[in-house]
């Protein structure tokens, strides 16, 4: 849990642990509060801000897991790109003030949502607590070169497939959003 960033501070072992658990608690509080706002807020822009806070918390957890590259990717892709995309979606759609989201969902919907949220918690929570045994060793930072060479050698097929998926998705969305404009 103690990441290598804290190792560099040359503090005693106990201080590492305390610092790491403090950081973990801070990030988990970010995740929980942001996630609750994102899932439950009746105002979509507010939900989006909650989502961005959750993304920041998850980026912090990536740092604690000794994968700084992923933390930067998380900030770039999620906070930088996807949040902006969702903000466009909110702005382009009539959704302000007294929008559809303002009315509370019905009782059945709330019950369904609670069941859907609690079932995985009840199923997987005990499984995780009882059956998980990770190594006691600290996670090490994977050199970026290893990730890059893996991307171009062993994992080249998923890499190419992701490129195709991205290409198709982008062309498809441009095509979808554009065609009516030419007819008018």
């Amino acid at each position: 849990m103690t990441s290598q960033f804290l190792m560099a501070l040359s503090l005693p072992e106990a201080a590492h642990n305390i610092l790491a658990y403090t950081a973990f608690t801070f990030y988990i509080v970010l995740i929980i509060s942001g996630g609750l706002v994102a899932a439950l807020s009746r105002i979509l822009v507010r939900a989006l801000v909650g989502l961005a806070v959750t993304f920041l918390g998850v980026a912090g957890l990536y740092l604690l897991l000794a994968s700084p590259f992923l933390a930067f990717m998380q900030l770039l892709i999620y906070v930088g790109a996807i949040c902006i995309l969702i903000f466009f979606a909110i702005m382009l759609v009539k959704n302000t003030g007294s929008g559809e989201e303002m009315r509370l969902p019905g009782l059945g919907q709330i019950t369904g949502a609670l069941i859907a949220a609690l079932t995985p918690l009840a199923l997987f929570g005990p499984l995780i607590v009882l059956n998980t045994n990770g190594t006691a060793e600290l996670p090490i930072i994977t050199p970026l070169m290893e990730i890059g060479s893996g991307l171009l050698s062993y994992y080249i097929l998923p890499f190419e497939l992701i490129s195709i998926v991205l290409l198709v998705a982008m062309t498809g969305s441009i095509f979808l959003a554009w065609d009516k404009r030419f007819k008018k």
Binding site: G35, L36, A38, A39, L40, L44, A47, V93, N95, G99, E100, E101, R103, P105, Q109, I110, G112, A113, L114, A116, A117, L118, P120, L121
Partner: peptide, 12 residues
């Protein structure tokens, strides 16, 4: 769990 909660309780 939070994602599922939001996914079902959202209207839009």
């Amino acid at each position: 769990a939070l994602g599922l909660l939001g996914l079902i309780s959202r209207r839009t």
